[in-house]
Design a protein around this nucleic acid. Structure first.
Lengths: 194, 194
DNA sequence: GAGAGTGATGTCTGCAACTGTCATCACAGC
DNA sequence: GCTGTGATGACAGTTGCAGACATCACTCTC
């Protein structure tokens, strides 16, 4: 497994690191895949062996996060309503994401926010989570359209909470922000008068 | 304005039509911009003058729809709560989208659903609506994070409702489906027990 | 009504994002 | 030592897209 000898180890990680640095310095558009690869001591072709496209280099742990969310939801007690179950998934997400250094998260988020193509990709990733969560809810005998609605609304909250957390105005725990965001949705959904 | 003489009229429309046909026939990836242009009696370069990139050709009326939604929200009575106001925007969207021939909508939606890049773009468009709606809500003195949450949740509902409406299992009015979807969200948000 | 825009188009050129294919070479197992 | 395997490099090719410039019907102006 670990290619310890012929090549430098962890090509993938080096590419991710190099990409983040270069994107932050010059911007996504002004950085070519070849430049990232060169900075990591590799070739362009190797870059595209590790990442399906240039954007993916910023979304490395995405599948892992999805698994955590799905586990969180499927592990919710049967007595939980759909949105409660989704909230467990969000807790799991917060626990995982909260362990990264906040400045790095912010840097990454800043790069993504600065570029439309990257924002697109982020939305697509989260939509993928939503589909997976909806499937889990259906396994828990939540019907349609409730399953889809709860899952999509929940992933929307993940996005909003992450944005709040990443902003300069929110220095709370990610878990706290996440839970607060859910509460806000419940309030907004019920409110009838302004 | 109308270039009636030297060139065939409505280049833009012809490109959109040609693209939809070719995408439906061979798929998005297997269709080059040059082929679309040729089918419309134009050149590749002209294609990219009308559309910023290959995907945009499928999202022609997007800005118009955004305007309708925004107008709907800003026209809501002051007594409306945030989600009620957003619901007016969704009604406006339904009114506009419902006037297209349903089979054409389905064809377009099928093309988009079949391709990840196009789904990405669709998500990005809707995220753009959400940002605009949130801004309108803030103008209506809805605070943060309520404005963002209501707007994002609302646009999520737009997406879900459109998908339901496009599916074979829902033959109701788009407005009906849209309203029903909002009701479902309210129910899901309140429910505490499964 | 001739001459100067103007706007939509075509042509030509070039870069960068990917992709397919084949070669290489350290290491692993036999 | 021989052979397989996996990660990489080298090279060539297609396509998405953008800049620069030419064209030419139509319009506006004097």
């Amino acid at each position: 497994m670990g290619n310890v000898g012929r090549w430098q180890p962890d090509s993938r990680g080096r590419l991710q690191e190099a990409a983040l640095v270069l994107f932050a310095e010059r911007g996504f558009d002004q950085t070519t895949a070849a430049e990232i690869a060169a900075r990591a001591g590799l070739t362009e072709r190797t870059f595209f062996r590790h990442f399906a496209d240039k954007r993916e280099v910023l979304f490395g742990g995405s599948d892992l996060l999805k698994d955590r969310i799905v586990s969180g939801v499927s592990g919710a007690p049967a007595s939980d309503g759909p949105l409660d179950a989704v909230a467990r998934g969000l807790d799991a997400a917060a626990a995982m994401l909260g362990q990264f250094r906040r400045d790095l998260s912010r840097k990454r988020q800043a790069v993504i926010s600065a570029n439309p193509e990257l924002r697109e990709r982020e939305l697509a990733k989260i939509a993928d989570y939503a589909a997976a969560v909806a499937a889990v809810l259906r396994d828990r005998d939540v019907g349609e359209p409730q399953a889809t609605i709860a899952a999509e609304a929940g992933m929307t909250l993940l996005r909003v909470a992450l944005e709040r957390w990443g902003s300069a105005y929110d220095d709370r725990d990610l878990t706290t922000t996440m839970r607060d965001t859910i509460t806000e949705l419940r309030a907004v959904a019920v409110a009838v008068d302004g």
